[in-house]
Computed example of a mutant assay.
Amino acid sequence: MTALKILVTGAGGFVGEALVFRLLAEREFSPVAALRGASRLCGLCPVVHFDLTNLKTLPPLDDVQVVIHTAARVHIMDEKSADALAEFRKVNVEGTLRLAKHAVKAGVKRFIFISTIKVNGETTGLGRPFTADDDPKPLDPYSISKYEAELALTQLAKNSGMELVILRPPLVYGPRVKGNFLRLLNALRVGVPLPLGAIHNQRSLVSVENLVSLIIHCIDHPAAANQTFLVSDGEDLSTTQLARRLSKALGNRAILLPVPEWCLNLLASILGKKAAVQRICESLQVDIGKNSELLSWAPPVSTDKALRRTASFYQQELTK
């Protein structure tokens, strides 16, 4: 049996690298890593240079049957561009569409696009999760560019016959995680008192292992063609619960101060940090029932196991 040749863009990133390592462990797949610089993958599988921000270059797609596109221009905390949306569009829309058209010409059968739950919106009412078929409501330049890419890819797929799969993950965590999740790990490790002891929201997260599992499930599943899926661990946590369970995974006890949410919101207004507190206090839930119905897929790794693996890797890195 010939292994399925798969190109993974963004293979030097958090999700892309984890995906390639998993594909290498499966005999039926032959991954090609497309990335911008040096990588731990060099020597383990074919590696090609591909920079999504360079609109003059495209990766070779000889015999590639599936493209999994994880590369993107993501959130930039200190955005300096006067027109942030134009910068996001240049990479996430124009760059993605150029790659997809290149894939069509090369005869690629399926294009899997890793989008974002922010296409659906920023928050949900408690107990009223987003579904894959909800009307999109992207609000910031990043999510708007991702949604515009989805629309362009959908039209291209209709006109060309190349199958399209869109996945919209919420916050992704796991070994090598960065950003706010890493900052939370750092604070919990050293025992910094955090004002997170009285937050009663519900947020969906997804471990990188569960996201990779769904991506692989969508590589050749017939029912995945031309569908959009949301993804999560299947268990929603409040910010308070997340901090406590992550602290437990680290082997210590979190110091969480029971500061009322109204107080956090007031402080955020004074300091101009409304968006940051929104992510801490408001709910964002997703319904993954469609994944079970169409794909017979369920998250293989529990939230607690994924948190333990994340904490264990984090602690091992500290000893190096």
Rank of each mutant, 00 (worst) to 15 (best):
L52F: 15
G37D: 14
L188N: 01
V190I: 14
G125I: 03
R279N: 06
P136F: 09
W297R: 08
T228H: 06
F111V: 00
V64N: 06
K320E: 02
Q315D: 08
T228N: 09
N92M: 11
I219G: 01
A11N: 09
A72N: 07
A275P: 00
G121E: 04
D134V: 05
M162D: 00
G191C: 12
L23E: 02
K305H: 14
L205R: 03
F313A: 09
G125L: 13
L284V: 10
A225D: 07
K5Q: 13
I288R: 09
F181W: 11
K56D: 15
T96N: 07
S39H: 13
S39D: 04
V66N: 03
R40Q: 15
G179D: 11
L7E: 09
A106T: 01
P129V: 03
Q285E: 12
L171H: 03
R253Y: 12
L99H: 09
I76F: 12
S232P: 00
A298M: 10
L237N: 01
L4R: 15
L237D: 00
P299G: 11
L250M: 14
T9D: 07
E148I: 04
G191K: 14
D133S: 13
T310H: 03
G179Y: 10
M162W: 01
T228Q: 06
A224L: 10
A71M: 12
A243S: 05
P129I: 05
V108N: 00
Q65H: 10
R98L: 14
V119C: 03
I68Y: 09
E28F: 07
E28M: 07
R27L: 09
H102R: 14
N252G: 10
D287Q: 07
S30W: 04
